[in-house]
Design a protein around this nucleic acid. Structure first.
Length: 283
DNA sequence: AAAGGAAGCAACCGCACAGAT
DNA sequence: GATCTGTGCGGTTGCTTCCTT
């Protein structure tokens, strides 16, 4: 037995919203506020499912929503965040003020996934051409034959291309309750030991390990807290109005994120650090 | 100009979780 | 502790628009 549907669909309107319906919904929410979506349609005089009202409000009618014209910076940020977080559209959307998870999801599915697919195919064909080129050199250069053969086998001997694939993290979807989201990474990053300021790369820090309660303590210190705070700014009131008041811009966020990401990648134990980094984002 | 296909996007659906009862 | 309700989320559908032939 599945759970009962959120509402009886009998007699309800479906499909695209009309301007009149939008007006009714906006007027009601402006007067009474958000919430109680199940009872909202009746009170607002709408023949809509509560979930439909919520979706319409969150994705289109809410103040501060930006529609269309995804900038190159946003585009780039979406790609990078997706490589870190996977299909966690709501998390990605929180890093893009004014954008909704639905819009980002649609944008990804209709634009970015195709573009990345083409890009990957081009990379693979490029690698194959490079491998073929090396092979030709091996044949023509008799003196270096052995050495080149060794190089070639080293580069592609196991059948894989030399393309470095970014690890995609696709953890289980978790819900962030209002009571739990207020934990900033600063709390997780060893507040007891951390006394340094912005950009302090020599501090000890600890993060929850993948198994749960245990902590990995270390002095790797590649993750500066100011950037992590940017990422894990998950206030329960992290709505667009508060987001819009944040001083950082997309440019700054992208720059800081990329910088930290590069630092992680350059570290000796980058795999462990990256996992911890992503886990901390998801916490 | 018309038809068919492709692409984009708004909306729906079902599941899962948190808090209330 | 069990059940119910409200909400959030990601996947999917289907309509509309654009493009190609």
């Amino acid at each position: 037995m599945g759970r009962a549907p959120c509402c009886s669909k009998v007699g309800l309107d479906r499909g695209p919203w009309t301007p009149k319906e939008d007006t009714l919904l906006v007027n009601y929410i402006q007067t009474h506020g958000e919430g109680h979506w199940r009872s909202l349609p009746i009170k607002a005089g709408l023949l809509r499912c509560g979930k439909s009202c919520r979706l319409r409000w969150l994705n289109y009618l809410r103040p501060g929503i930006k529609r269309g014209n995804i900038t190159p910076d946003e585009d780039d940020l979406i790609i990078r965040l997706h490589s870190l977080l996977g299909n966690r559209w709501s998390l990605i959307a929180r890093r893009l003020p004014g954008r909704t998870d639905n819009e980002i999801k649609n944008y990804w599915n209709s634009h970015l996934s195709k573009r990345l697919k083409i890009s990957n195919e081009e990379n693979e064909s490029k690698c194959m051409r490079e491998s073929a080129g090396r092979k030709r050199n091996m044949i023509s250069n008799v003196n270096n034959k052995r050495k080149l053969e060794k190089d070639y086998e080293g580069a592609s001997g196991n059948g894989e291309t030399s393309t470095t694939k970014t690890k995609i993290h696709t953890p289980k979807a978790i819900r962030v309750s209002p009571s739990s989201v207020n934990i900033s990474i600063r709390n997780m990053v060893g507040s007891s030991s951390h006394t340094g300021g912005v950009g302090d790369h020599d501090t000890n820090w600890c993060v929850p390990d993948l198994e749960g309660d245990n902590h990995i303590n270390g002095d790797q210190g590649s993750v500066s807290n100011h950037c992590l705070d940017n990422f894990v700014h998950d206030d329960p009131d992290d709505d667009f109005s508060s987001q819009n008041s944040l001083p950082r811009t997309i440019d700054n966020m992208l720059e800081e994120m990329f910088e930290e990401y590069q630092q992680l990648l350059n570290a000796d134990n980058h795999a462990q650090l990256l996992d911890s980094f992503v886990d901390s984002l998801l916490a």
